[in-house]
């Protein structure tokens, strides 16, 4: 069965199982209504809340992980870009300029990660750990460690408005995912990323600018984190430098791994990461809906994560599939 060799199938299976459970256990889970010119329901929340943080961060993280790296700084970069955008609109800048400034600085911080890794030769986990600490500090420094509330309607619209009934973040993020996937697969860029992650030395000898590839993926990851930070600030009409994005890098890594991109680098699947992020968000909302006590909620979460990872394990699948299909040793 060829379909079971696709990496996308396992997070999808987990997602479907979870959705079936919800269909049985919580009536109204799939209830979607039209309210004030927009769709309103739990499924819409999954897409909206999922798009704003895990999905967006996972987009950038997928490419970073495909090169064999990791980016721990995304949560802190969220804090920086949210703070910059909020301070800009408070200073009277138009929304586009404020968002541009936030995204610009976030991309720059991502590129700094890239330089530290590709040019200076630091381990990705160390370089981005440094940025994780420094970025949070920068956000605190910019804001004087205080929350920055704002009342700019066009900025809050970015997270609270809707386009054709769909929340703006969903349209933005799915659009970004589709464009990114299209560009990577229609050009050689995707191949270069996978080659860099598979075997950097061989790729370099084959003429791929692996340093440039790495620089680009960290810059892109910074950009995605920046957009996520802007959307999170827009959602609550305030930038929260101390706590925005805190530990969300782990959600992103989970979404990527659940989606079938291995931490060792090489082949990646953007669609898989999107499904992984949806799986994570569905799980979170399921636990809210079932009113699972917050103290024990991490346990069912861990069980689902473990199950998906085990399904991805070729060794485990080989053991169960031994009789029907010979798996290359």
């Amino acid at each position: 069965m060829k379909v079971f060799r696709s990496t996308l199938v396992w997070p999808l299976v987990a997602l479907v199982v979870l959705l079936v459970f919800n269909a049985v256990a919580s009536p109204g889970f799939f209830h979607v209504e039209w309210k004030d010119g927009r769709l309103f329901g739990t499924v819409v929340d999954i897409f909206n809340q999922g798009a704003r943080v895990p999905m967006l961060l996972a987009l950038g993280m997928t490419l970073v992980i495909a090169t064999g790296g990791v980016d721990l700084s995304v949560g802190s970069i969220m804090a920086v870009s949210g703070a910059v955008a909020a301070m800009q609109v408070n200073a009277g800048a138009p929304m586009v300029q404020a968002v541009g400034a936030g995204l610009g600085l976030a991309t720059l911080l991502g590129l700094v990660n890239g330089v530290l890794i590709a040019r200076v030769g630091l381990q990705p986990i160390i370089a981005t750990l440094v940025m994780m600490v420094a970025g949070r500090g920068l956000a605190m420094l910019l804001t004087g460690s205080q929350m920055v509330p704002f009342a700019n309607r066009s900025l809050t619209w970015l997270a609270n408005g809707s386009v054709g009934g769909l929340p703006v973040p969903v349209v933005l993020v799915l659009g970004l995912a589709v464009v990114t996937g299209w560009v990577l697969r229609r050009t050689a860029a995707g191949l270069f990323i996978e080659a860099t992650g598979d075997n950097e030395k061989a790729s370099r000898l084959a003429g791929i600018q692996t340093g440039g590839v790495r620089l680009a993926v960290y810059g892109f990851s910074g950009f995605c984190a920046g957009l996520s930070g802007v959307l999170e600030a827009a959602n609550i009409s305030a930038a929260d430098p101390a706590r925005i994005g805190d530990t969300r890098e782990l959600d992103a890594i989970f979404a990527v791994v659940a989606g079938g991109t291995a931490l060792t680098g090489g082949r990646f699947s953007l669609a898989g990461s999107v499904v992984g992020a949806l799986l994570l968000q569905t799980l979170t909302l399921t636990l809210y809906n079932q009113n699972v006590a917050p103290a024990v909620a991490p346990v069912p979460k861990a069980v689902v994560i473990l199950a998906v990872c085990l399904l991805h394990s070729p060794r485990l699948r080989a053991r169960f599939g031994k009789r029907t299909q010979p798996v290359a040793a």
């Binding site: 109204g28 209830h31 309103f40 329901g41 929340d45 609550i236 929260d240 809210y288 009113n291 006590a293």
Partner: peptide, 23 residues
């Protein structure tokens, strides 16, 4: 009706509330 953590954060308070309003 439900008791869930919002981690003392404004954003999490909003996310949890959004979900619980539907439920």
């Amino acid at each position: 009706l439900a008791s869930q953590t919002g981690d003392f954060k404004r954003s999490d308070g909003k996310n949890v509330m959004e979900a619980l309003i539907k439920a």
